[in-house]
Amino acid sequence: MLNLEFVIEGGDFTKAGQASSEVKQILKQINIPPAHIKRIAVAMYEAEVNVVAHAYKGKMSVFIDPSKVYLKIEDEGPGIPNIEQAMQEGFSTATEAVRQMGFGAGMGLPNMKKNVDEMQVTSEVGKGTIVELTTYIT
């Protein structure tokens, strides 16, 4: 069992993707099958970018055992009032500045869902959001 933790800074787009890149390298080093790595990379990048785009700060915890890769991304931020709505493709609350960079297309949460086996979103308005992503290694 491998357990790693990465800090994600809210609002800092210069570092967006850094945690995901580091985790991807580790997954490669420990020989997780490439097909799994590709999908996990998409999901965790989206989760990381969401923290950068919406929250004040957050962390990504990675738990790896021979049967699965489990990612937990928790942030201190505004929270999501309506998770069902947020899960809809195209729905976004991103600012205009964020959208101009090509983020905020409302594809983040749907991209996560498409690329993992299990996904859970827990959120409290005014406090923060927890996204849990599980991929089973078969």
Partner: peptide, 26 residues
């Protein structure tokens, strides 16, 4: 759209874009 590329591009492809900021590298 970065999420579109994340979700739909595949390994080994050339990505054509007008985005120039550093997030395209990640």
């Amino acid at each position: 759209l970065l999420s579109d590329v994340m979700g739909n591009a595949t390994e080994g492809q050339i990505w054509i874009t007008i985005q120039v900021h550093k997030n395209i590298i990640a």
